[in-house]
Design a protein around this nucleic acid. Sequence first.
DNA 1: TCTGGGGTCCTAGGACCC
DNA 2: TCTGGGGTCCTAGGACCC
Length: 415
Amino acid sequence: METSATILHADLDAFYASVEQLLDPSLRGKPIAVGGGVVLAASYEARAFGVRGGMPGRKARELCPQLIFVGGHFGDYQRLGDAAIKVLDDFTPLVERISIDEAFADVAGCTHLFGPPAEIAAIVRRRVRAELGLPISIGVARTKHLAKIASQVAKPDGLVVVDPAGELAFLHDLPVSLMWGVGPATKARLAEIGVETIGQLAKTHSGALERLIGPAAGQKLAALAWNRDPRRLETHRRAHSAGAQSALGRKPAVADVFVPTLLHLADRVASRLRAKDRPGRTVTVRVRFADLRAVSRSITLDQVISATAMLAETAEELVRGVLAAHPGEKVISLLAISVSHLEESAELQLELPLGLADEKRRPGSKRGLARFGADRAIDKIRQRFGKQAVGYGAVALEAARSVPDEFRELAEKEL
DNA sequence: TCTGGGGTCCTAGGACCC
DNA sequence: TCTGGGGTCCTAGGACCC
């Protein structure tokens, strides 16, 4: 077990909002929200009014009438997020990126070059501010969990170092909601038995805890409350599933609506799977009704798929099954497709067997291979001329109305 | 009068096998 | 006729994270 605090958790503050304030100085010091229908990020000035990410735009405006809605510089989000992570890369190769604006780094192996972890963290913060113009908070501790909590405590624009001798003293006064894995539901359950701080959680009988929130979560939280976090940094994480979804507002639950939408979603998912040679076996769809209740259906196939038409048809059958099981639901508000059980990255030869696999599912038909060829042709055109060069007709128009693809891509994980 | 979009992990029951 | 147990896979749903 390490005895010194060498793990950094670096987290850019109010990232999208900070980028917008960087690009347009007239926005600095003002309450701004990135997004429109939904708040994707709020500046600290806006948060002072109670505006939060994920909040409907209308509610945000009610809370803060002078709120300024901005956004859309997706390329800059990606560029600046990458640049911030690169600063960490200058110190150590042990960097685990969590999202566009957040990463862990273990500096145990480079303190002889750059000084103690706290000093490295201070340099990183100075460089990100000087070179990129962005505020970033950093937590330094002996474990990932504690480093992450420390960075949350450090916000905005701060640095918190947790000395190994003072870990539990630091941890136990904090609210349980700061812990990894405690969301609204768990927080409410813990409150039922009077547990509001991490210290109270640590002293809760393990049996009672496991009965309350389940064995896995109970054991995990108990361990974290005593700062026993066995997780190592994972520098090369790959996704285990790939999906796409689209909110529809309120649309009638008819084929004219769900068929073209599913084709568009299947196209997004399948082209990613093909690009990384990671076809998958399990297809899951989600249908959300007017009252926001969601139902899912999945099927695990004998063969992997990555062909757009095949995925679209499979999803269509699943959605028809959902609607048949809920004949009272006449309105849908969201459709989603996800593919899991992904194959490990395959060799080049996969190209032909993949087409043959399609053919195998539909004996006596040439559609499998023909469609496989069409997918490849579309992939190549997009590679050369951009994603918008070729699409699925009317569906492309419909897609333009929802969240821009550039924003979706910011959230995609490496397949 | 629009509640987004990308993921991970856990649970519980049933099917099936040994 | 009833009595037993363990493991794996699949499916549906829920909670959580960024």
